[in-house]
Every structure is written in structure tokens, then in C-alpha cells.
């Protein structure tokens, strides 16, 4: 049994917790985590081959957090994310094809090629986008939650962000607004210990991030973010409270990214041994072990892995073969249609 020195929680997934989850759901959780893992490997490969440009931030290592949280959201809930959001998009049910095509800048991408890796969006799944200004999506989440409340629905808005977000003014302003207005927001901080290359405790007073929410009167807890079952269970608990109208909730997940901040990161700031330590706590390996103990057969697990392989191959092929957006579409949707406008915006003649 391994003890995580950061969370001091039991690092073996409890068999009792696993037994409480329906089997098809266990398979779905494993499938999503494997899908994300493989997707990111393929994305890195395509980046190296020049198919993907710009910034690419991989989610590898953090799968249990995104999958655990998002698995408990309802279809009519909203989800906002940051720029490391491929995993969240896939967990939310976006097709790997649409996500990969967006990375390729193709018109078949989730944002029609206009967004890129950091700005994936799908209105039909209420996946409200990846945002590349740290913490800037938290006020948006408060707003969508306010709309839900005001329109009389019981939809919840979840906002996922990193430990790097918690020293931004927008983080504190959002927590305050959500608290005073009792907004149905689930704040999820993925604490992977590094804001880019700066370790969280070097730059964060009260590095126990969940405590920051407590001072706003928000129910808050820390969970082992490498344990998908634990994350799922705590998310369920928090979401139920938020949905009952008890105001916002906050979850800090302790997790780790195996890859650099982006593809350009030489990783001078951490030891290889640290990365290895966390790889030893791999969320997919741990979950697979727990499933085997729960009498899921190796054959079933292999089947999921094979399915993932073909899904990702298909996604890459689809992205490769899809067309780029036509240059004529450059100025499409700068503005939403407005019937009363008499001339094009921007002083054009």
C-alpha cells in the first residue's frame, strides 16, 4: 500500500467503493481515461509531425480528475475549462474526431478550426470552452450559474482550473460572488503542483487551496485526484448539495501532469524522480488493478484498450482528411447577426 505524501490518503482504490459503482459505469470510466491517455499521446505525435501548431498542453496523468468530476454532471449542466482541456472535452462526450480536428485547425473541429487546442467548445454538450487566460473563465461560470438560477432550472455550472489560477483576482472575485449570491457553481481546482514551472507552495500563501474557499463560506474539500472513484464520489456529493440550492461547492484534487507545461517545456524545474514517483500512482493502472480485483477480466480491459486504439486512429485519420476552413470564412461570425444593423461593423464601406 502506498501513501501519498501530499494527501496522506490511502493510495489503493478501495474495493468497497468500486463495488458501489455499476459495472457499465466502471467500464465507461476506464474507457474515458484510456481514451484521454491515448488521445494525448497521438496529439504529441501529431505535434512533432507539424500537424498541430501553437501551444499544446497535455492532460496526461490528470485523467482521474476530469473523468471523475465530469462523469457526475448531467447533460443539462454547464462545464467551463482552462487551456489544458482536451481531456475535459473528451470526458464530456465530445467526439475524439471533433477534438483532434480542432487541434489540426480543420473546419470539422469542435470550434470549426477557429479556436485551436486551447479553445474547444461544444454548445450541444454544454461544454462551454477552454479559456487561455488563467482563471478568466471563473466569472463566466458564475454568470451561467446565475442565468440557470434566474431562469428557474436546477442545472449546475462546473468550472475546472489549476493551482495557478488561485492567485488571480478573478478567482477570488468569483468565489465571493458565487458565495454572496448562492450560485450553483462547482469549483474544481486541479492541483498538479505547478503553475507552468513554478511550484505552488513557492507562490501561494495557504497552499492548501481548498482552505481558501472555506473563508468564503463555501463547502470545500480535498480529494485524491489520482483516484477516479474517490473523485467521482466526492463530485457526486458536492453536486447534490449544489443542486439542492445550498450554494457553491469547491473541490481541490491532488493530481500531477506527467508531461511538461506545454510541448516547449524543457522541465528544468523538477526532478525526474518526482515524475517517476507520480507515475507510480498512475490513475489508470490503479483503477485497472481495482477492476481486476472486482472480477473484471483482463479480456474486458483489453477490449476497451483496443476500442480506444481504433477510436484514436480514426480521429487522427479524420483530422488529417478534413478540409481547412476556407479563407473566405475569415470574417465569419465576428459578430452575431443583428437585424437592426444597417452596415457592416468596423467602418467598412
Amino acid at each position: 500500500m502506498t501513501t501519498n505524501r501530499h494527501t496522506e490518503v490511502d493510495m489503493a482504490i478501495s474495493d468497497r467503493s468500486v463495488a458501489a459503482v455499476p459495472k457499465e459505469e466502471l467500464s465507461a470510466l476506464l474507457h474515458k481515461m484510456m481514451l484521454i491517455r491515448r488521445f494525448e499521446q497521438k496529439a504529441a505525435e501529431m505535434y512533432a509531425r507539424g500537424r498541430i501548431k501553437g501551444f499544446l498542453h497535455l492532460y496526461t496523468g490528470q485523467e482521474a480528475t476530469g473523468v471523475g468530476i465530469i462523469s457526475r454532471l448531467r447533460d443539462d449542466d454547464y462545464l467551463y475549462s482552462h487551456y489544458r482541456e482536451h481531456g475535459h472535452a473528451l470526458a464530456r462526450g465530445l467526439e475524439p474526431r471533433a477534438v483532434m480536428a480542432e487541434l489540426f485547425g480543420k473546419s470539422t473541429g469542435a470550434s470549426r478550426g477557429f479556436g485551436g487546442s486551447m479553445h474547444i467548445f461544444d454548445k450541444s454538450r454544454r461544454f462551454m470552452g477552454g479559456y487561455a487566460i488563467v482563471s478568466s473563465h471563473l466569472p463566466l461560470a458564475c454568470g451561467t450559474a446565475l442565468a440557470c438560477k434566474q431562469l428557474g432550472t436546477d442545472s449546475v455550472t462546473a468550472a475546472i482550473f489549476g493551482d495557478g489560477a488561485v492567485n488571480e483576482g478573478s478567482f477570488h472575485e468569483s468565489l465571493n460572488l458565487a458565495a454572496i449570491w448562492h450560485l450553483p457553481v462547482l469549483f474544481v481546482c486541479e492541483n498538479n503542483f505547478y503553475g507552468m514551472g513554478t511550484r505552488v507552495n513557492r507562490v501561494t500563501a495557504t497552499p492548501e487551496i481548498y482552505k481558501r474557499a472555506e473563508v468564503y463560506g463555501i463547502r470545500s474539500e480535498r480529494v485524491d485526484g489520482m483516484d477516479v472513484i474517490a473523485v467521482r464520489e466526492r463530485a457526486d456529493h458536492a453536486l447534490q448539495a449544489v443542486r439542492r440550492g445550498e450554494g457553491p461547492a469547491f473541490i481541490e484534487t491532488i493530481t500531477y501532469r506527467y508531461r511538461g507545461h506545454s510541448m516547449a517545456d524543457p522541465e528544468f524545474y523538477r526532478e525526474k524522480s518526482e515524475v517517476e514517483h507520480w507515475r507510480g500512482l498512475d490513475p489508470i493502472d490503479r483503477f485497472t488493478d481495482a477492476l481486476l480485483r472486482a472480477n473484471v477480466s483482463q479480456g474486458e480491459i483489453d477490449e476497451i484498450q483496443n476500442r480506444v486504439e481504433s477510436e484514436i486512429d480514426d480521429a487522427a485519420r479524420f483530422a488529417e482528411e478534413s478540409p481547412f476552413p476556407p479563407v473566405e470564412s475569415l470574417t465569419d461570425h465576428v459578430y452575431a447577426p443583428s437585424p437592426l444593423d444597417v452596415r457592416p461593423p468596423g467602418g467598412g464601406r
Binding site: 462551454m128 466569472p139 454568470g143 442565468a147 440557470c148 478573478s170
Partner: peptide, 16 residues
């Protein structure tokens, strides 16, 4: 200002 302007944006996207 940052908080409530952003909240206004999110509320507009959410249907208000």
C-alpha cells in the same frame, strides 16, 4: 469589476 463583468458575460451566454 472583473468579477461582475465576467459574470454578466456568462449570464448572457447562459440565456439572460
Amino acid at each position: 469589476e472583473l468579477g461582475f463583468v465576467g459574470t454578466g458575460i456568462g449570464a448572457a451566454v447562459g440565456g439572460l
